[in-house]
């Protein structure tokens, strides 16, 4: 049976669908920490990240996706963060990125 492959499968569309994503959670996150919107995508947080140095954890990508309403897997992914706070030291926009990790986890805990 294993060799039978008709070329069909059910794969989730990769596109971020801003019409159907539930943006209420991301709005609530932004509402609580508006500075998150000031991110300029520089990647300094990811570059300095302790967890990112040893796993494929990418903090910049993760919080950008969360802001677009893409929550799937975000909570588990954030478990890789060890809250060392190095990201906060380097963010050129002065975003309290460490607090953001905790905020996103709190908001997405029940997701």
């Amino acid at each position: 049976m294993r060799n039978l492959n008709f070329g069909y499968g059910i794969s989730r569309p990769r596109a971020i669908d801003m019409d159907n994503n539930d943006l209420r959670k991301s709005n609530a996150i932004i509402h609580e920490m508006p500075e998150l919107q000031a991110c300029i995508g520089c990647g300094s947080c990811t570059a300095s990240c302790t967890a990112g140095g040893i796993t494929d954890f990418n903090f910049r990508k993760l919080h950008t996706a969360v802001r677009r309403g893409e929550y799937r897997g975000a909570y588990e992914e954030l478990n890789k963060c060890m809250l060392c706070g190095k990201c906060r030291l380097v963010c050129p926009r002065g975003i309290n990125t460490r607090a953001m990790v905790m905020l996103i986890k709190r908001k997405l805990g029940d997701y």
């Binding site: 990769r14 596109a15 971020i16 669908d17 801003m18 019409d19 995508g41 910049r60 990508k61 950008t64 996706a65 677009r68 893409e70």
Partner: peptide, 12 residues
Amino acid sequence: EDTLTGRPLKMT
């Protein structure tokens, strides 16, 4: 493309 997440994005 939302190039910062590396994924296509669509919206109305």
